[in-house]
Design a protein around this nucleic acid. Sequence first.
DNA 1: ATGAAAGCGCTAACAA
DNA 2: TTGTTAGCGCTTTCAT
Lengths: 350, 350
Amino acid sequence: MAPSDKITIMDIARRTGLSKGTVDRVLHNRGEVSRKSYEKVMKVIEELGYEPNVYASLLAKGGRHMIAVLIPSHEPGSFWELVASGISRARESVETIGIDIVPFEYDQYDIASFEEASRQMLEAGPDGIVLAPMFRDGTLVLTRELEKREIPYAFIDSKLDTDGYLAYFGLPLYKSGYLCADQLTGGQPVDSVLMVRIRRDRLQQSDPTINRRAGFMDYLLENCPECRLSNIFIDPNDPSGIEETLDAFSREHPGIRHIVMFNSRIHLIVPWLEKHPVPGRKVVGFDNLTANMEALGRGTVSCLIAQRPDEQVNLAIDAVAEYIVRKKLPPKKDNFMHMDILTRYNVEYY
Amino acid sequence: MAPSDKITIMDIARRTGLSKGTVDRVLHNRGEVSRKSYEKVMKVIEELGYEPNVYASLLAKGGRHMIAVLIPSHEPGSFWELVASGISRARESVETIGIDIVPFEYDQYDIASFEEASRQMLEAGPDGIVLAPMFRDGTLVLTRELEKREIPYAFIDSKLDTDGYLAYFGLPLYKSGYLCADQLTGGQPVDSVLMVRIRRDRLQQSDPTINRRAGFMDYLLENCPECRLSNIFIDPNDPSGIEETLDAFSREHPGIRHIVMFNSRIHLIVPWLEKHPVPGRKVVGFDNLTANMEALGRGTVSCLIAQRPDEQVNLAIDAVAEYIVRKKLPPKKDNFMHMDILTRYNVEYY
DNA sequence: ATGAAAGCGCTAACAA
DNA sequence: TTGTTAGCGCTTTCAT
């Protein structure tokens, strides 16, 4: 424990012949400082390489801050549950620096609920926000308001093509589809693949998997153009319907040994797959939901492409916190995250 | 920014009718407190759910701490360079909490240099240590000393089977070999594979890849028992020797299309591989060295198994820092890290 | 064994 | 526009 020879605002006050108060004012561009003093202070800060002491600062300001997180509600076993668990971790790490995390949740299929959640969130008066933009228009309205109020916000999962956001953390969607195709085919020619998709009725929202599917198809076009693609649609809430659909399909296409889903719910077809084992069948899905990882462990699913959603919220929260506390912009605005390839041999420690 | 209703040591002083000084004494078990007062204070702390304010604490103690990191020297382009880069990141994140990171490096092939580095490190008087134990005996001597001095230490990369360490962060070596075999074979029968190994002359140290190789062989035994294994040995410092060895081998075994190396230096054979392209050849190696990732991007290497060494040091440093600052033990002592599978389609954002 | 008091470096309210 | 001052919550020294 060395006796820190850190230089303080007192040092720089002395060197400029001004007072701590004035120094503090220029430090925070809080105005009320003559141009001359301002420059003198800046110069000395430069010379001495002054670095503010975060603790003293935080301690002195005293109050706490709040970061709101606006995400779809986390049904047990869903993708958003993983995100929620990341939030809990983040909460612990930032509470020590005087920041509270408050989640606001909405139904991802119901734009009204999104608007309601936004309203409540705004009312709570957060100092910063992390959000997953499921509804384009609703999000635009919200972000405009945030910019007006000068509340910093970061996107996770996907983002809008505007640019008022502080940072974005998420997957490169198109490439995740490309990677997925490579994993499914193993780089070998394949004669047909089955894409299992979710039937979407009330579809206001932009389908988040569309880019992923595009990447997937492009890979096939480039690397195995002969490959035939089939689509079937299932309803997540109708397990027996799922079985029937799959039964019917496999009756008509008995040879299919390559199956893929582009959302996080490959687990929906796992029961059927396990009832109808096929040696050498390849099944690829996305995201590390517990049910998915278990199927991976049993060998029913061959490969999962995952993205550490908990890590993503964490980074987003940290970026916002850093901005709130130190007014520091993150090193990169758009942060495309690594895509993890999970197989039965490396899930264990994920 | 809510006006924090946090309860402070003043609150608990009032509630017990004692003074801040006494409360502080029990908080840090610093003795000189009557049994009665001690219990009163503990009780109230319990009741009020008191949480100390790290900032105030850090600010008041003032001094800085030092964490030493003892690792093999980081030749450019080597595995340890990745670790070193992680150290730089960690340094930034902990310097704000008053902790300095000081690296001490040694020649991983020279035990004397390890001992010398340990000595210097000890002399510098660190408050905590992160180390990669390359020499078993030397490390034992060191850790005994650390325990005597009550300096907390964490292992990275590999660990000793003692248990005075605070935490360990590293790969499950055996399993990484198993995973590697699965990636190399793609789960299909393979008739022969070539293992390229480093010739080690002055070999005091335990070969770090031995467990990995064991995992690899076990996979083959279980999943493709017919497979024939060949070994060749190369000298990292003799590029033309490498070419010759490979030439000679491929003359005698023209059919080999599965090649693996168990250390981080697959890049050593990349020039030869690119001079002798073979369609459908599979090459698997370890670790995200720049040269390795580039070869992956070009398709020369099919797959790398990586472990985010920078992340590992970071976690280790954080664990030690947390212990120094808050005397908190990490949630888990042995932290086996996820093994990342890297292909040309997901290296980009690694 | 306990209390009082002087800071740690910074912020913010108030005076000047 | 600038200086002064009273804390923020905790540690630590020095009395008592």
